[in-house]
Design a protein around this nucleic acid. Structure first.
Length: 431
RNA sequence: UCCUGAGUAGCUCAAUUGGCAGAGCAUCCGGCUGUUAACCGGAGGGUUGCAGGUUCAAGUCCUGCCUCAGGAGCCA
């Protein structure tokens, strides 16, 4: 009786008879010998068959089945240097669940639109498979980081009656005759959580109806948002720095085989070591101007500026103290400069752009009320938010990290659409 | 919304100055006992994105439209 063993465990079963259940990834045949590349979700392995050493019916099956046929293969595990993974399976029997003909995605090159239209199948390809495994691992690493440090997972709602950052475009939906919005950030609710639990975080999807058409944007993306009571902007930067260093270091260990498949240059990730430079906004303006960029004080960074700053330092860099007028209403003013707020962005290395945005929130109720008014926001929907300042207010800080940008950075993918199973972009809602 | 580029076989692409629409892969047939996106021989496969125009002749030139890409704006 053969045992069922996942492909990534085969090396521990050399000499044993096992049964694999999976799909045909590719096939090479040479008249009297055939090589079936079989995948089962955990990995791929080469199964070898020699004509005359299996039943004629089995050989007939091998000759005719196409890519992505579902099958169970029984055979003996053998170590062989000629096999791509160092291990191969000597076939004794094959059971075909479905013989497939005409699988659309061949092992050759394809265009973006063709692949995106078949995203539900593209996921099976080795590289896409590796990227999404890294995404899965990173989500666990991120959650564990905060669980292990006393944070409480505190889920923010997806449906909200208000916009967090007044200016941004929101997806509007009908809510039993009222208007509701898909959340663009869980932060405001995290502030309520921080006042209840001290340290909280949320990790879920967020939505932006921006008409962005670049490799750095999705309309639905996942954001991790910690919020900490009795914390300043410098505390927030300390947490963000340690968090990123820990996550990258752990990913280098846990995702090594996936990063090999993706041919990621590991030295770029190994360079992610604390401390990260903390650049005052004023100094970033000077730096960009000295580099010959057309950048005025008060401008926000574009993709090119972020790339330039991260290349200059060769590691992630914080920019902090931003002009108040380019940041949302809830940012705490800089006590030393009333035209600045205590906001910070973390720019990833390798040109992957802003992966964290955060800062210190206003804790004074009177100041918060005046900022709401300044930004032209209605007071009524924010009454509960003002309550947080009326009853036991404290200085508090937090940040938001875009998961897809982290995954793109770690895996070295150039485009965010490959870092989530089914990306949502302007112009694409299917599949 | 703006700018730039692309659209030719199922897929990825070529086609000189406007002059017979091609290749590789995939598919089908045949060959090969160690292949690594296997290889070798053969076959089938086209309304050149759509509509109009110029010309003896348009994949190629002109006008309009559609779709896609990635950059700007906006942002994680």
């Amino acid at each position: 009786m053969s045992s069922k063993v996942p492909i990534d465990q085969l090396a521990q079963h050399i000499g044993e008879q096992v049964e694999l259940r999976g799909w045909l990834y590719n096939k090479r045949s040479s008249g009297k010998i055939a090589f079936l590349e079989v995948r089962d979700g955990s990995g791929t392995v080469q199964a070898v068959t020699v004509r005359g050493k299996v039943e004629p019916a089995t050989w007939e099956v091998i000759e005719t089945i196409g890519q992505e046929s579902s099958l169970a293969v029984t055979g003996t595990v053998k170590a062989d240097d000629r096999a791509p993974s160092g291990v191969e399976l000597v076939v004794e029997a094959i059971e075909v669940f479905q013989a497939v003909e005409g699988y659309p995605i061949s092992p050759k090159e394809h265009g973006v639109e063709f692949l995106m239209d078949r995203r539900h199948l593209w996921l099976r390809s080795a590289q896409q498979h590796a990227v999404l495994r890294v995404r899965s691992a990173l989500q666990k690493i991120c959650r564990d980081y905060f669980y292990e440090r006393g944070y409480v997972l505190f889920d923010s709602p997806m449906l909200t009656p208000l916009s967090v950052e007044g200016t941004t475009t929101l997806f509007e939906t009908d809510y039993f005759g009222r208007s509701a919005f898909l959340s663009q950030s869980g932060q405001l609710y995290q502030e309520a959580g921080a006042m209840a639990f001290g340290k909280v975080f949320c990790f879920g999807p967020t939505f932006r109806a921006e008409k962005s058409k670049t490799r750095r944007h999705l309309t639905e993306f996942w954001m991790l948002e910690p919020e900490i009571a009795y914390a300043t902007i410098d505390d927030a930067m300390d947490v963000a720095e340690d968090f990123i260093c820990t996550v990258i270091a752990q990913a280098l260990v846990e995702c090594r085989s996936e990063l090999d498949v993706l041919e990621r240059d590991l030295s770029a990730l190994e360079a992610v070591q604390a401390p990260f430079p903390r650049l005052h906004y004023d100094d970033s303006v000077k730096l960009l101007q000295e580099a010959g960029e057309e950048f005025e004080w008060g401008d926000d960074f574009g993709g090119g500026h972020e790339t330039l700053l991260s290349k200059h330092f060769g590691k992630p860099v914080f920019i902090n103290r931003f002009p108040a007028r380019i940041k949302p209403f809830y940012m705490e003013p800089d006590p030393e400069r009333d035209d600045l707020v205590l906001g910070c962005d973390l720019i990833a290395s390798d040109g992957y752009g802003e992966i964290i945005g955060g800062g210190q929130r206003i804790h004074d109720p009177v100041l918060l009320e005046s900022k709401l008014e300044e930004h032209g926001l209605p007071r009524e929907p924010y009454e509960w938010y003002l309550d947080l300042r009326r009853y036991g207010t404290v200085p508090h800080s937090g940040f938001g990290m875009g998961l897809e940008r982290l995954v793109a950075w770690v895996t070295g993918r150039p485009h965010l659409r490959e870092t989530i199973p089914f990306p949502r972009t302007i112009g694409r809602l299917e599949p």
